[in-house]
Design a binder for these strands. Structure first.
Lengths: 190, 190
DNA sequence: CGGTCTCTTGACGGAGTTCAAAGCTAGTGG
DNA sequence: CCACTAGCTTTGAACTCCGTCAAGAGACCG
């Protein structure tokens, strides 16, 4: 049931049969259709989400009422508003499926209980979080280093599957570009 | 000797006397003058750094040979190139003191040995890293949400001590602005 | 097939950069 | 404690990348 998650955890730490049962107790699996919401602005983000299958996006709406995507999550990625999750503060984000998806979730209380019962999971999560920090550092470096055109091309080269899978205007939004400008860049670069 | 670090750790987990001795064994304390380097571009970042006293900056140089700051670290902040640290890859960053500083460092091997000996530190680091991810999410949201002017003003309101402590051109660089534009903004907003 | 998303095109404008030069400030050595 | 110098900040003019607006052409789904 938690196959992808378990495979993922086992890349970093060992996990015996009993531990798997414990995980089964705390994680819930949900299936969503395209464009369903897991979190809406103003709600407290009470869970961490792990994508078993499919693709999610996290976005907020700015003054002019258009959507700014800040994160995608596909298979084997974790996603959450960590600020809202940690402090029980209302979130400024939406989390929504981009396509039909299966998602595991664990809420605040289960999370703490799970960590108490399986302290070795602290190590797994520490590594995951550390990798996420590394990824953020890279992302911010690219944002400062590259022009918007270079940033777009770099993204297309780095994640060609994503570019195929996700509509163009969402890629534009994620990169902080207008759909019009992306269209111009596509024409220009074949 | 590790007073600030220990105080910091104790905000998140419990720590007995024996554990403190173990930490003493693995962490090294170094004092640096203003503008000394802890890491240079091309070197592998072999340590995590914890600032006991003072202030560091992390930056890279772009094509036009000017410095782009991506991170500051003052008292009780961790800093490192996590990508280089994790994979032993050459770093694209410099880490340098902004002012006279006392810094604790722990290298890759000591880090792993320390975690083996004190597994409860996994929890501390998981929480630290999770907070760092939350901070990155916030930072990226602001970068997308605010104009450069708003971004600058927001930073000044959020970190007034920093604005006093660090030269203006470094603030500009950290925010992705030119010193000229920051100068203009200052005049405009009193 | 009709309607609603999505992508493209082109004209225009402005926030923020670049360049060059002058004015300040603070740290250093004498 | 002063004077010198290197480094920091300010100014203003010219420029440009990229966003905005408006409108039309495809494409996908019920």
């Amino acid at each position: 049931m938690l196959q992808n998650l378990i495979k993922h955890i086992r890349k970093f730490i060992e996990l015996d049969d009993h531990s798997i049962e414990v995980l089964n107790k705390y994680f819930k699996k949900n299936s969503y259709k395209k464009k369903e919401f897991l979190l809406k602005e103003g709600q407290v983000c009470r869970s961490l989400y792990f994508v078993e299958q499919g693709c999610l996006r996290m976005y907020f709406t700015n003054d002019k009422m258009n959507e700014q995507i800040t994160q995608f999550a596909k298979e084997n990625w974790w996603i959450s508003d960590f600020f809202s999750f940690a402090d029980n503060k209302p979130s400024g984000y939406y989390i929504q499926t981009v396509e039909k998806s299966d998602v595991l979730s664990i809420d605040t209380l289960s999370f703490e209980a799970m960590l108490k019962e399986l302290p070795q999971m602290e190590r797994y999560l520490r590594i995951i979080m550390q990798n996420a920090v590394a990824a953020s550092q890279r992302r911010i470096k690219y944002m400062y280093e590259l022009s918007k055109e270079e940033f777009y091309l770099h993204f297309c080269n780095s994640f060609p599957e994503f570019v195929q899978r996700v509509p163009q205007y969402m890629i534009a939004s994620y990169l902080g570009l207008t759909p019009e400008y992306v269209s111009e860049l596509r024409k220009k670069n074949l």
